[in-house]
Design a binder for these strands. Structure first.
Lengths: 181, 181
DNA sequence: TGCTTTTTATATCGAACCGATATAAAACAT
DNA sequence: ATGTTTTATATCGGTTCGATATAAAAAGCA
């Protein structure tokens, strides 16, 4: 799904500035299953405006760039409704951390264990964020997605926590001499 | 991690053509945590060649483009070893399927249930692929990564299988009248 | 044997996207 | 008072994605 369509989706929830849309991707409910930076969002909003799928109310402010609040139009709503109808592509999990672990034999043991510890902390923090936000008032869709995210992240975290001792232990032994089994 | 570095990583496992590298990303052990298409791989290999990080043995063939087998050089190995040392960015899970579910109220119930069924089948197939491949002869890194992948994908699958009845049920009731719990 | 489909294999091109960077005031903290 | 974080827009170069083109060998099948 391109950034244009995702922005349109966010705008179905209410008017927003580009900055606010970005925040949704960073902290909000869209957090873990989609993403886009300013470099994609602002051009996308411009294009949407050009196509009449959103309107823009410009609040001029002295000494700094205008604040631009975008609203979805009827045409925009229809476009979005069409767009999410077609079959979604495959889910993707991408991890440079795992790439590092795949080539674990290129790295010193302490660096690996450190990376795992860091990743455990990261997953814990993310899960916390996903769990503790106020879900009252959320519809079934957002709740479903949030719970899906929790399930997946919790599984990743559990696997890392479980593996950590084994990884650290392997480092205590003389290099490359793995005990059978 | 950019495509150049990942290709270099693959080449530490043995010589390969661009096509073979692509296959690794599609079916092989890199399957679920990284990806790159031809449009990225071929230019990446050219750049690596220009930088002396790989060599290329060209086997000219009559009537079709030369087969180019790439090998990593000592400089390439050193470059790669450096590259995987620096701290990896955050893991990313991206899903247009979940975007659709988030905006579930824009879609007819049967389409949603259909999408969920399709996704269940997709996760089952992926898991199968990850499970049944011959892991004898794999090092600890690849095994770790494979098991991590299985854990994550299994969690996603379990969540979907568990949720499916609830989703289908909600559709049997008159639209938007959700019985309290 | 002859036909079709799949697999092997390279390559390009435009559109989309990411990350870094620039700017600047208000709000908050120390 | 001074520094940091937050609000807010925007661009630009490099990277990457997806679609498309080409073509022969291999494999399936009738």
């Amino acid at each position: 799904m391109d950034v244009k369509t995702v922005c349109l989706g966010v705008l179905t929830l209410g008017d927003a500035t580009g900055y606010e849309i970005r925040k949704m991707f960073e902290d909000g409910p869209f957090q873990y299953f989609t993403d886009a930076g300013f470099g994609s969002i602002y051009p996308a909003l411009n294009k949407l405006h050009g196509e009449g799928l959103v309107t823009c109310e410009q609040q001029s402010q002295s000494g700094r760039p205008d604040k631009k609040v975008y609203s979805i139009t009827q045409a925009g709503r229809e476009y979005f409704t069409e767009a999410i109808r077609d079959a979604p592509g495959p889910d993707k999990f991408r991890s440079d951390f795992l790439l590092g672990l795949f080539f674990e034999h290129f790295l010193p043991r302490d660096l690996i264990v450190g990376a795992v510890d860091e990743r455990i902390a990261w997953y814990r923090a993310k899960l916390e964020k996903m769990r503790c936000c106020d879900r009252s008032g959320w519809g079934t869709g957002p709740v479903f997605v949030n719970e899906f995210g929790q399930a997946v992240y919790a599984a990743a975290l559990a696997f890392l926590e479980e593996s950590r001792p084994k990884l650290a232990e392997a480092g205590d032994k003389p290099n490359k001499t793995q005990a059978a089994e």
